[in-house]
Amino acid sequence: MSVGDASTSPSLRAETFHTSLRDRLLDPRSSPRSGEVTLYWLGQAGFVIEFNRFRMLIDPYLSNSLAQKYQGTKFPHARMMAAPILPDELDRLDVVLCTHRHTDHMDPGTLQPLAIRFPKARFVVPAAVVDEAVKRCEAGIDRLIAVNAGERTEILDGCFVSPIASAHETLDRDANGNYPWLGYVIDAGGVRLYHSGDCIPYPGLEEAVAVHAPHVALLPVNGRDAQRSGNGVPGNFTLDEAVTLARNGGARAMIAHHYGLFDFNTISSDVIDRRITLEKANGFEMFRAQQGQGWRLR
């Protein structure tokens, strides 16, 4: 499949399940078939991505480390939803991708247990934060795959990642030209997913995404404001901005996420659902990430 070949474009189908995520992942009937990719939401920006025999996680936050860190502060980071699965409940894992160093995306309370439980698993991280990633994963440098915007790296057999710079809320680079905030285009056998990490619009982003013509865009929708930014909580796309990026970036569908975990940094699910109804009426496929639902891209 060539980039932008709409005639053979995969379709995204939602599947509801009534078991735990652990049992769902253990059930061989839910595994992706040849040429398919399956997705499950972990809360916040986290997803399980399965392709062929491989399992990836992106930005998993499966602990309470932020609640412990910020207990008694203005933003206590208490969970509004429990982690749908814990690190020791996973039966296998090949790769973890972290888009940047913030704890809800690169969480020591999640990554360290995973590194121990799965000693062959590797970690894709921005080259700009390799030293921090080593500490947070407590894994040797040999287990890290350091990447930067503009590259294309094979992370598994037949699966490539192409990072795109993100602005959180600023578009930053270090002295070596590496971007600390990244989004990832994951190309799994020709099925392309774009996960922006934490990001706001900036000139050239739509064009950078459109080059890859992702089939599905996984985008945060919790927005931003002066109160959050002024208290050390940099923001993300608004719902309008996320939909605009997905459409103008050539995505065939969008899954809205990064809501519903912290009460000071979220958006109402009803607001997302109303937008989904509107977009579908206008011919654009859109979903809200939620527990008890998976997606099959085929």
Score class of each variant (00 low, 15 high):
291 Q>P: 15
191 V>S: 14
173 R>W: 07
22 R>N: 14
255 I>L: 10
296 R>A: 03
132 E>W: 00
120 K>A: 14
297 L>M: 10
296 R>K: 07
122 R>T: 13
57 L>S: 05
208 A>R: 05
124 V>T: 09
122 R>K: 12
211 V>E: 07
222 N>C: 10
277 T>A: 12
25 L>N: 11
174 D>V: 06
28 P>Y: 06
194 Y>R: 00
160 F>N: 15
141 I>N: 10
119 P>I: 03
102 H>Y: 08
190 G>V: 03
106 M>S: 10
89 E>H: 01
83 A>G: 14
178 N>Y: 07
149 A>P: 05
3 V>A: 08
254 M>R: 04
28 P>E: 00
171 L>C: 04
161 V>Y: 04
21 L>I: 11
242 A>C: 02
161 V>M: 03
110 T>S: 05
156 L>A: 00
109 G>W: 07
249 G>C: 00
35 G>D: 07
231 N>E: 02
190 G>S: 05
186 I>F: 02
207 E>C: 10
294 G>W: 04
98 C>G: 10
55 R>Y: 02
61 Y>E: 06
298 R>F: 11
261 L>A: 12
20 S>Y: 06
116 I>T: 14
287 F>V: 11
167 A>T: 01
161 V>R: 00
163 P>A: 01
219 L>G: 13
35 G>T: 09
95 V>D: 05
174 D>T: 07
251 A>E: 07
212 H>E: 11
110 T>V: 05
184 Y>T: 08
190 G>T: 07
200 I>D: 02
126 P>G: 05
251 A>H: 06
295 W>C: 09
295 W>T: 11
253 A>G: 10
280 K>M: 13
297 L>T: 14
103 T>D: 10
99 T>N: 00
208 A>V: 11
95 V>R: 08
266 T>I: 03
209 V>E: 00
228 R>L: 14
73 T>H: 03
97 L>S: 08
45 A>M: 11
251 A>Y: 04
7 S>N: 14
117 R>I: 15
118 F>W: 02
29 R>S: 13
90 L>E: 14
30 S>E: 01
36 E>I: 06
207 E>F: 01
276 I>W: 01
258 H>E: 10
52 N>R: 06
255 I>V: 13
260 G>W: 00
36 E>H: 03
104 D>F: 15
95 V>Y: 05
96 V>F: 01
172 D>M: 09
83 A>M: 09
134 V>R: 06
2 S>F: 13
1 M>T: 13
129 V>I: 14
60 P>D: 09
271 V>Y: 13
236 N>I: 04
1 M>P: 13
94 D>P: 11
298 R>M: 13
47 F>G: 01
237 F>P: 14
68 Q>A: 15
66 L>Q: 08
42 L>G: 15
274 R>V: 15
118 F>E: 08
70 Y>F: 12
261 L>P: 14
227 Q>C: 12
126 P>E: 03
141 I>L: 06
141 I>D: 11
109 G>I: 03
